[in-house]
Design a protein around this nucleic acid. Structure first.
Lengths: 220, 220
DNA sequence: AGAGGATAATGTACGCCGTAAAGCAAGCGG
DNA sequence: CCGCTTGCTTTACGGCGTACATTATCCTCT
């Protein structure tokens, strides 16, 4: 150990909370959530595991911070357009895109409430746009929630197996391919959706959602 | 040990995969996912941890089976109505209700692809109904996905903290209450949504989604 | 009926994990 | 120059998943 010859044992400023966070995200991206242990993260930073406890009180707190970092990054730089439909759509797609950049970490985001100030700022702006279009603020928040959650869950599940995988073959998979006899409609649908980009389903859902909202607008 | 005096050491039929599953679900419901260890589950069943490995090859496989059990239970008994809108709505709400019965386990469902035959059956039936209403099967599947995922993510996040919690007070919470100066629209919206039932937001989103779908139907 | 395998459980052990506690080297203010 | 604070290491503990070996019962076949 002490493979850093330029510094003695008690040097300062070797680590920072933010550097740890970034390293944790990189590690999880590369080797999965399971590889994200304190010891592993320590060696990744050239440091013993216990050193991390000088910057975070527990692993749980560290993971909370990772989620915060991620959500901040995901909701950053939202152009505040005045067209609520475009804003909402952009929010959903951008959120999704940012989350899918770190697919391994999405389950983490699910389990801890991540309310950062950047996050709140974006939601505030969206709720403002929507309210300005004549919706009750309560409704506006529901709308933002719906789109955000849809984007989120698509990010979480898009890496998993879906029907298209089953139909494409590879019968060593869990249940084998979907048989066209047992599930005719499903097989046809899955067959048709092979090869579509990952965002297709999300865009469809978000657009339908927004269409539904717009319809609501004209009948108070 | 061997607190069961009526049977010797190698008796059969002491355990079954299904009994283990139910016990695992009960344990996790009661004490959280963290308490669901092989040793703990073993003692819960009056058995050593390694005994479980005769019924499941690994803990991971056991968790997969738990998810399967859960999803099967959640999608069971869907009345196959011929009204696609009612069917879709019912599917979403029932799915959500079943999942929220085991809030601790929802994060588990997120991380493993759960495609059970019961599951496929329900989706098949829904896709059938929707196709019969004139939608392309591919679209029908997208619609089922959208509703299912919305229900799922609402179940996953409904136990977490949302904006209403912040506004209600308790400034010891992560960021403290939402300040009405910094986030006027958000504060108003959160204030207004205090006290609503948990399913309210989901119902709103599902209804909007279905309205959007229906609109699509009239413009091919 | 007796042999032999299959089955279901145990016991032991290994290498991970998160983290509490204590120690130890540098830098800094008095 | 002393001693406190800061950043890191060392050591240790209990719990985890599970590989491996063992044992005790039941089922089947001759």
């Amino acid at each position: 150990m002490t493979a850093r010859p330029t510094r003695g044992r008690g040097q300062h400023a070797g680590l920072s909370a933010h550097a740890i966070l970034r390293s944790a995200i990189r590690l999880a991206d590369r080797e999965g959530l399971g590889a994200l242990s304190m010891r592993r993260l320590g060696t990744e930073l050239g440091v013993e595991a216990m050193a991390l406890y000088h910057h975070f009180p527990s692993k749980d707190a560290l993971l909370d911070a990772v989620v915060g970092e991620l959500v901040t990054e995901a909701t950053a730089a939202q152009p505040p357009g005045d067209d609520w439909q475009a804003a909402l759509r952009g929010y959903g797609l951008a959120f999704h895109a940012s989350l899918t950049a770190h697919p391994q970490l999405v389950p983490l985001v699910l389990t801890r409430p991540a309310v950062t100030s950047g996050n709140l700022q974006v939601v505030e702006s969206l709720v403002g746009s929507i309210s300005a279009a004549g919706f009750a603020p309560e409704r506006a928040l529901d709308m933002v929630y719906a789109v955000g959650r849809l984007a989120f869950v698509h990010a979480a599940l898009s890496t998993g197996t879906d029907e298209a995988t089953f139909v494409r073959g590879d019968p060593t998979d869990r249940l084998g391919a979907i048989s066209a006899e047992d599930y005719p409609h499903l097989a046809a649908a899955a067959q048709a959706s092979i090869g579509r980009p990952l965002t297709y389903r999300l865009e469809f859902a978000v657009d339908a959602l927004i269409a539904g909202f717009a319809q609501l607008q004209h009948r108070p």
